[in-house]
């Protein structure tokens, strides 16, 4: 699903965010990406969803070298990646329903299909009763779950999450993680960037550790998921 071949990323200001990273995430695999802030976790995720392009090396997503993909093709790659952000990135002038429906509207799904899928996704994250509310009326944990519903609503084969439990208490964090495990169980590849080591330690998944842009540790033996 994801393959990094000797990937380095240097930003225009000279900061070297990633140095010579190589790893593979198989289809249907669930993995954590850890490291201190500034270790390069976010950059790695940005390379996968083509928000940045590698300075050298190859980032291959679904057998496609995304570093070489033209500007016009990028949206179609992103439609197959569900992204979850620490700051949720919701549209606050729209209802929960409209936020979750966004990827489907963009992809041009039929109207009835949109209603059906949005409600299924909201049901999955336990927010079906709040579809008509605006995100501002929800708690932090609920907003994060709206973000998750939006990420999975078009059933992407790959989920990326950047610090999805960053602002949540341990109980809510565990709930969110179990949601990701449920998606993984039905075949979705999941990559979660997190520095919540105590939470990660409790879960039996692969952990990729970064330090100052280098791959520090990759306990590939413990594979989670299906």
């Amino acid at each position: 699903m994801i393959q990094f071949n000797e990937v380095s990323k240097r930003y225009p200001n000279g900061h070297e965010a990633l140095r010579n990273i190589s790893f593979t995430l198989d289809s249907g695999e669930m993995s954590f990406l850890t490291g201190h802030s500034g270790a390069g976790k976010s950059t790695l995720l940005k390379l996968i969803c083509v928000m940045e392009k590698p300075t050298s090396g190859q980032v291959i997503i679904d057998n496609r070298n995304v570093g070489r993909v033209g500007r016009r093709k990028i949206p179609y790659i992103r439609r197959n990646i569900g992204m979850i952000f620490q700051d949720h990135r919701l549209l606050f002038d729209r209802t929960v329903f409209d936020n979750v429906a966004l990827p489907l509207i963009i992809a041009g799904y039929p109207h009835r299909e949109i209603g059906r899928r949005v409600r299924a996704a909201l049901d999955k994250v336990g927010l079906l009763s709040k579809e008509k509310l605006h995100p501002i009326m929800l708690s932090g944990g609920e907003q994060q779950r709206v973000g998750i519903a939006r990420a999975v609503v078009n059933k992407p084969p790959l989920l990326l999450a950047d610090e999805p439990t960053g602002n949540l208490d341990p109980e809510l964090s565990a709930e969110i993680m179990s949601l990701f495990e449920q998606f993984n169980q039905v075949g979705v590849s999941v990559l979660i960037a997190s520095h919540d080591l105590s939470l990660i330690a409790r879960l039996p998944h692969r952990v990729i550790s970064l330090k100052e842009g280098r791959l520090l540790e990759d306990n590939n033996e413990v594979t989670g998921g299906a």
Binding site: M1, S27, G28, D62, L158, G187
Partner: peptide, 9 residues
């Protein structure tokens, strides 16, 4: 969502 081998693009 596809088979147990994982979902596809």
């Amino acid at each position: 969502l596809g088979g147990p081998k994982g979902a596809q693009f």
